[in-house]
Computed example of a mutant assay.
Amino acid sequence: DSTSIKVCHNLRIPRHKSLSGLASRGKGTMGWFYGFKLHLIVNHKGGIVAAKITPANVHDTQPVSGMVVNSMDKLYADKGYISKA
């Protein structure tokens, strides 16, 4: 699952100014938040193979195509990353 990176509390979204052009409101496993999502691909030893940070309103399936390379034999993910492609 993607990891949420919260920028500020939901009550302070209208007053938040430092990342207002980059951060967005999105929904994660723990509910709504304002910030970014961190997507990681790790190998069988726990080493990071690929990483990407997206605004919170980007669906989990979108950054995967830019992170996956043809040399990866198998890819395991949670339900949020499943798509027809």
Results as ranks from 00 to 15, higher is better:
I5S: 09
I41H: 10
C8E: 12
Y81R: 02
W32E: 13
K79W: 12
N57D: 15
T29P: 14
R25M: 08
L38V: 12
P55E: 11
G47A: 09
N43L: 00
Q62G: 14
D60R: 02
S71G: 04
I5K: 07
G28F: 09
N57H: 13
T3W: 11
K17I: 08
A56F: 15
N43K: 00
M30H: 12
Q62R: 14
L38W: 10
S18E: 05
F33Q: 07
I53S: 11
T61R: 10
K45H: 13
K74R: 04
D73Q: 06
G35S: 09
Y34M: 11
I48Y: 00
K74L: 04
V64R: 07
T3E: 11
P14Y: 00
G31P: 01
T61H: 06
K84W: 02
G47T: 02
A85N: 04
S2P: 14
T29K: 14
V7Q: 12
Y76F: 00
S65Y: 08
T3I: 10
S24M: 06
R12A: 01
A56M: 13
A77I: 10
K45E: 06
M67N: 02
G28Y: 07
K37L: 14
T54P: 08
N10Y: 06
C8T: 15
S83E: 08
M72W: 02
A51W: 12
F33W: 08
I82W: 05
D1W: 14
I13S: 00
C8A: 14
Y81S: 03
V42Y: 04
T3Q: 11
G66T: 14
H9G: 15
V49W: 03
F36R: 04
N10D: 07
D60V: 02
K52M: 13
T29A: 15
G47N: 06
Y81H: 02
I82T: 05
H44I: 06
I13N: 00
P63C: 05
F36Y: 07
S83V: 07
H44E: 10
H9K: 15
W32G: 09
C8W: 09
V58M: 10
N10P: 04
G80Q: 08
T61I: 09
G80V: 07
S4M: 15
V42E: 08
D1L: 15
I13A: 01
V49F: 07
N10R: 07
